[in-house]
Design a protein around this nucleic acid. Structure first.
Lengths: 335, 335
DNA sequence: GATCATTTTGCAACCGGTTGCAATTTTTTT
DNA sequence: AAAAAAATTGCAACCGGTTGCAAAATGATC
């Protein structure tokens, strides 16, 4: 059926080793045999079987890309960057959709069966223990968009969610809001917890400012809209820090439907700066998460760990910055 | 390092074949040895190496998932459904991001190196020749969201874009629009061409209606917005059939910014019915593409072709239907 | 209990490659 | 031109499994 090494060896009149060596970087082959082999390979249309070679080399160049965020538009950008970044280094993403699942065991088993060289866990909602289970199973792993811990057990790349929460709080204060609220994602998501913590801690230094906290049931438009609608029915805040852009957009829709003007009647700030946030029918003020850097660093780190398995766990956090658009009122002239 | 068949065989005191057989569906093993093996395997934490076995069985359960649509939010839903659908059948998606590339040769080589059992090409913009190249290389392939041809060379699953164009035209006519336009995606995308053809052909039966055609440079918000802005500067139409929801949303934004009210001053109808189309700040009237069915059928077809390689190429087209929301004025009481 | 049919088992070869080692060839040195 | 050093080559074993085949064990039949 398919052309194998042996076919090429016979056609070129050399040993199988010679063929293998011409396709192996840095192996010892003379120019003469190399060209004989290359000609034969080209004529037969041979290309080496990556899986067979993985058996002896121990490397498949497969990277498990595990995620449970298939409903947040940000993740389309995330997948685009991950797949491109991996391909550029000759690595192949084996995609795992966790959907409801939060138990790592079946994913681990599957990814080990396919001998992935490493795993990228792309999720802001999974607990640290998820990625740790991969590490315990001996698989190099990086948790992207994961949670910072002071003594990490696995590599984590992401943002400082606590600092983002604080940045949001300070942004609202600086714009003169006196009654503010956090409208988070799912309460059990680690990113939500950290963002809430930062937000509240910054506000604890401003006792004159009124704070409240609520949670949307998911990182989704509907959840944001539902929760905001609920807020608007009672004594609502002047400005909301939403745990995610898509929640903020849902909240924006609820405010508009309630006849409120944004940012005059109610201010909104999101987090992520996904593509859609800059759409001119949205113009969401938000905190930008540098996903391209996060993904680049994640890939570097997983590759580094494949080469050097006992590397010490590292946390790489990238700074975020506030992107001024039209859903918060402008900064007061003098702070 | 990792536990192999041999380790389990030694621990259980049986031959390697016996171990292999207990992990092979339908192989002949006595209950006694099976339980011995299972106990040993459990104690050692053994799980079989899928790649090694693929060497002899010829099946990897890897499916190449090739796409060039990493900027259209619809495709996040598409990837979600594909990955879930494949996982549910024990298959593993190996993701290939084509980005700019439209030449299949490097993808084909790579996917053959990994011995994928089949390939799913998920793209409405790639030409039929792309998927055909896989078929010619002997790889079972299905082109999802692809173009219908009367004598197809490969399996195609999707919608009848010509019929959709016609449906859009009829929808606009039925709502009393007298001056209509097609605002397509990139002119060279096969889906755009077909939608335009259907739209124009339906309108050719209504010479009293004024028609024009223009193209956005991409299936994206910005491209839709830019093209619509251009339209609005001259003598614009009363209603636009946009080649895609995300283009329609861009066009909607342009119309709003120009101070026009939708649907009173200008009507818009999209195509796809992606999640966002139903958001309450958008409420886009659109033609629904049944992506879940398309994806299910695509997977069925690729699996079927793996089992029966010389199966005749099939085209499966699913019906679309118009989803009434708020960007076209209501139907006239009597047609 | 002997005979025959059926099931279970292990041997050994194979899937498509890689690699250590010793033999061979080529190049360099003297 | 011979000797020494370096580069190239093929052999054979191995990576972690699967599978056809014949031998061994079990079960059925008389």
């Amino acid at each position: 059926m398919a052309i194998t090494l042996k076919d090429v060896a016979e056609k070129a009149g050399v040993s199988r080793s010679a063929v293998s060596r011409t396709f192996t970087e840095g192996a010892s082959v003379s120019d003469k045999t190399r060209s004989k082999v290359e000609r034969a390979a080209a004529e037969l249309g041979y290309s080496p079987n990556a899986l067979a070679s993985s058996l002896t080399t121990g490397r498949t160049k497969l990277i498990g890309l595990v995620s449970n965020n298939f409903h947040n538009p940000l993740f389309l950008e995330v997948f685009d960057l991950f797949t491109r970044g991996l391909q550029d280094r000759g690595l192949r993403p084996l995609l795992v959709n966790l959907s409801e699942e939060t138990d790592p065991v079946s994913s681990i088993r599957m990814l080990r069966q396919y001998s992935v060289d490493g795993v990228l866990v792309a999720s802001s909602t999974l607990p640290p223990s998820f990625a740790e289970a991969f590490k315990d199973a001996g698989v190099p792993v990086v948790h992207s968009f994961g949670r910072y811990t002071s003594s990490p057990h696995v590599h984590v790349v992401g943002i400082d969610n606590v600092a983002c929460g604080r940045m949001a709080a300070e942004g609202l204060i600086a714009r003169g809001y006196r009654k503010v609220a956090f409208l988070g994602g799912p309460e059990k998501a680690t990113s939500t917890q950290d963002r809430a913590m930062g937000f509240l801690s910054a506000l604890s230094e401003h006792p004159e400012i009124d704070v409240s906290v609520s949670y949307a049931s998911a990182y989704s438009f509907d959840a944001g809209r539902v929760e905001m609608t609920k807020q608007l029915m009672s004594n609502h805040a002047e400005a909301y820090f939403c745990g995610d852009d898509v929640i903020a957009i849902g909240a924006l829709s609820a405010a508009n439907d309630a006849g409120l003007s944004v940012p005059d009647d109610v201010g909104l700030i999101g987090l992520n700066d996904m593509e859609m946030a800059s759409w001119q029918n949205i113009e969401l003020t938000t905190i930008r998460q540098p996903i391209s850097e996060i993904i680049g660093a994640s890939i570097d780190l997983v590759v580094g760990t494949i080469e050097e398995p006992h590397r010490h766990p590292e946390t790489r956090l990238f700074p975020c910055r506030l992107i001024e658009r039209h859903t918060l009122r402008p900064l007061k002239a003098s702070a």
